[in-house]
Design a protein around this nucleic acid. Structure first.
Lengths: 263, 263
DNA sequence: CGCAGCATTGACGCCTGTCAATTTGAGTGG
DNA sequence: CCACTCAAATTGACAGGCGTCAATGCTGCG
């Protein structure tokens, strides 16, 4: 099996420009990343037990389009993908960001067609699994079914977490939480990366967090002024996390007063 | 003037006592699948193929508590249940409302313990399905597995819809959408009930919609002043939908300006 | 070099959160 | 049956956060 990107997505941008085999300083990192969530094991399981179609995607490519007939699930082997919900009146809203090991297209199972556009943010490899074939494989390999259910369950929980942050955090705190979550997503639940490259515009972040692009910009500027993060590179899309503890503290401190305690 | 969900109560009895005649009653194709969504069919499938434990719950009873070891999934046969997320600092947030045919406990699959409290709002019957037993039954009955996946998929979509309404609607519009959604949930996707009984406090609604209880109250008062809804009974917990079209129009009219168009 | 898209920053105003007073209804005990 | 208490709901006044509008800077590309 050939992997387009060997491991940690921290090096993704470097890899896309020059074909550096991701390792050297990463010995510890890769070792840390793998065991926590078993993503690698899942990918191996899938590759071993299923006929999969590997697709190389580039930034802007649509993995599966809203409204199209549901047939495949997709697993991200490398890269990053945004999930965009298309409202009735053409309104577009970013409802999720997915990375290596995440599944796409789960929303299509019930209605029989996908609800969301999923668009690559970056060069990467996505595996298409025919849903019927997946079910067959699951019958033979219960671990595979267990894994599928875990991923669906995680997706449900993720949605709820997003609701929580929308409801209980002030706008700047939501941005801080977004930055932290992005960093965490790239490393698994270990310690976050200290450098992340946002691959979305301020407008998209705002759409995800329920605020305007101006508010996103102001919040990021504030976090930088306070020394929690820093900008690097051009375009202000690369963010250095300078003080993770302070960031976390800021998020907690800016939880809105328990607006309405439920009992 | 207290009606306790006449429709769902009658269905309960039909379901548990006699099997529903599938096709003979003159309706043609639609008679096959009882309501549009096949909830009744699913319940029959479960009851036929699985060892289930039926539990009668009353308002305030906890179906499954956050943090407890995951073992069962639950299906609501009748009644209404609220899903409450418990934050780190004891913050409680209402993240969902579930009715007949909805599944509970799906969030527990991935972590191995439930993430949310689920609390009955009303007298009803909940079925507990042992997860292991469910998987076994699914192996023998693919339709059951398909159904489970559909329900998980729906749950994912529901979370995204909630995010959408949080991000794109003004506070009063969110309340209007909440009322409409509650009514729709009780009838299946046909036309909503014209009379619904809210079984939660304003504070809980506010927690669900990301606003204060005062804003909820003001919004409901406004909807009533405008003639879209009306209050009935005592405590202002019973709501009559007077003009569904106007309600829907109000929701659309109060979609926030496309704050940040994606792309 | 100039254009187009993205990001930043400021000024202003509205929505909605906060605080507070009042009313209603339900439950309890005398 | 009534007085008392308490939770829930409504309504008003006020203030602050954040959306809106607008001007400017920065970067990459034709």
């Amino acid at each position: 099996m050939h992997l387009v990107h060997a491991s940690s997505a921290s090096n993704v941008h470097r890899l896309s420009t020059r074909p550096v085999p991701a390792r050297v300083d990463g010995g510890g990192a890769t070792a840390l990343v793998q065991p926590a969530d078993g993503t690698a094991e899942m990918l191996r399981l899938i590759a071993d037990r299923l006929p999969i179609r590997r697709t190389l995607v580039h930034a802007g490519d649509t993995v599966c389009g809203a409204g199209r007939h549901f047939e495949n699930l997709y697993v991200i082997n490398s890269g990053a993908v945004k999930v965009v919900n298309i409202g009735a009146d053409g309104q577009e809203q970013l409802v999720g960001l997915q990375f290596r090991g995440d599944w796409l297209g789960l929303d299509g199972i019930a209605p029989g067609s996908y609800c969301c556009d999923t668009v690559a943010l970056d060069t990467g490899e996505v595996w298409a699994l025919h849903y019927g074939a997946l079910l067959l494989a699951c019958a033979a390999h219960p671990r595979l079914l267990a894994r599928l259910h875990m991923e669906m369950s995680r997706e449900i929980t993720r949605g709820r977490d997003a609701m929580l942050s929308l409801c209980t955090l002030s706008a700047p705190a939501r941005v801080a939480a977004f930055v932290r979550q992005w960093a965490e997503s790239l490393t698994g639940l270990g310690r976050p990366l200290e450098e992340i490259t946002l691959r979305v515009t301020r407008a998209e972040i705002g759409s995800h967090l329920g605020m305007t692009l101006e508010s996103v910009s102001r919040a990021l500027s504030f976090l930088a002024r306070s020394g929690m993060i820093d900008f690097a590179g051009a375009g202000r899309r690369v963010i250095l996390i300078r003080d993770l503890a302070a960031l976390t503290g800021f998020i907690r401190a800016n939880a809105l007063a328990p607006r309405s305690a439920v009992r």
